[in-house]
């Protein structure tokens, strides 16, 4: 059993009549790259704000490192919530020193993390002179200060250009490779798909789904087939191990499997039965489609 980092139990928070977060429970274990996925307004930031003691939950609770939350536990977590928050009139180094002071961490890794964030040359420039991407990178850098055990990132690539997104993702990948636990909130499915290995899906503050990102993808595998003799093809493919269902449209048969199916194996299986395929395509549904379907199902 992996070491638990965060336990969330029945966490709820309302703003007036709106239930921002409703009976949310999940667990994050050490080394996971944990995604919180949901459209805007689904309660991601509210959840993270509660986990960092910015917002008081109405009911329910959570534990960091197996203990009730405290300023001590927050010092072991590096976080970027919403926008990068720094003093605009201070330079990057001074801003980071303030973070280090609060976290009781030494200054000696400031130069290193500024290098990683690609901001070393601008370390003595005032924060207000930074571009949007640089600000975001400084925020991620400050979260990495003192090698925290957990990194919490709320929409870290929001509003960045493709190059900026790639830079942030590289940094996250590097931190994850060190064995830190990462909690990432995003409305971008593609991002969660690329970075995370575990995901919870939120909609209107309710958890719709939680599970391994790979499992989510595997479930949604399907393969498109076509052959001159359609009837023969249907009969043959129904006998393939793992077959679950099929749909037909415009002469193309879409086959779903209960386990990952290999196109090469299917091709050879069918040719042994004397069926020559005129069309064979692997249709892995992206997490995005799956996510949209999840949201649809729960309307």
């Amino acid at each position: 059993m992996a070491e638990p980092i965060l336990n969330v139990e029945n966490l709820s928070k309302s703003f007036g009549k709106i239930k921002a977060v409703n009976q949310l429970s999940f667990e994050v274990t050490k080394g996971q790259v944990f995604g919180i996925l949901g459209p805007n307004g689904s309660g991601k930031t509210t959840t993270l704000s509660m986990l960092l003691d910015l917002i008081q939950p109405d009911s329910g609770g959570f534990q960091w490192f197996g203990q009730p939350p405290s300023k001590g536990s927050r010092k072991r977590i590096g976080s970027v919530i919403e926008s990068p928050n720094f003093f605009p009139y201070l330079d990057a180094v001074t801003n980071l020193k303030i973070v280090a002071d609060i976290k009781d961490k030494p200054y000696n890794d400031i130069a290193d993390i500024l290098q990683v964030a690609g901001l070393y040359e601008r370390r003595l420039s005032k924060f207000k002179t930074f571009s949007f991407g640089m600000r975001q990178r400084l925020a991620v850098a400050s979260a990495m200060l003192g090698s925290p055990e957990v990194l919490i990132l709320d929409e870290p690539t929001n509003g960045l250009d493709p190059q900026g997104i790639a830079q942030i993702r590289d940094i996250i990948a590097m931190v994850a490779s060190r064995g830190s636990t990462i909690l990432l909130a995003s409305h971008l499915l593609d991002e969660v798909q690329k970075i995370c290995n575990y995901v919870v899906v939120l909609r209107k503050g309710v958890m719709l789904f939680s599970g391994n990102v790979k499992e989510v993808l595997a479930v949604s595998d399907s393969i498109e087939l076509a052959a001159s003799d359609k009837q023969e093809l249907v009969t043959a493919i129904s006998e393939y191990p793992g077959f679950s269902s099929l749909t037909e449209s415009d002469g193309i048969i879409q086959v779903h499997f209960s386990q990952p199916a290999d196109t090469a194996a299917i091709n050879s299986f069918l040719s042994q039965k004397g069926i020559i395929l005129s069309h064979l395509a692997d249709k892995k549904r992206s997490l995005e489609q799956h996510f949209l379907e999840l949201l649809q199902d729960n309307k």
Binding site: L52, D53, L54, K71, G72, R74, K75, I77, S79, I81, S83, N85, F86, F87, P88, V99, I102, K103, D104
Partner: peptide, 21 residues
């Protein structure tokens, strides 16, 4: 008020300062 304008009060708390501190 700078602390509210720049949201650094939030960041200070996130980073591990207690509200009392």
């Amino acid at each position: 008020t700078n602390e509210f304008t720049f949201k650094t009060i939030r960041q200070n708390v996130i980073n591990g300062m207690s509200k009392t501190e």
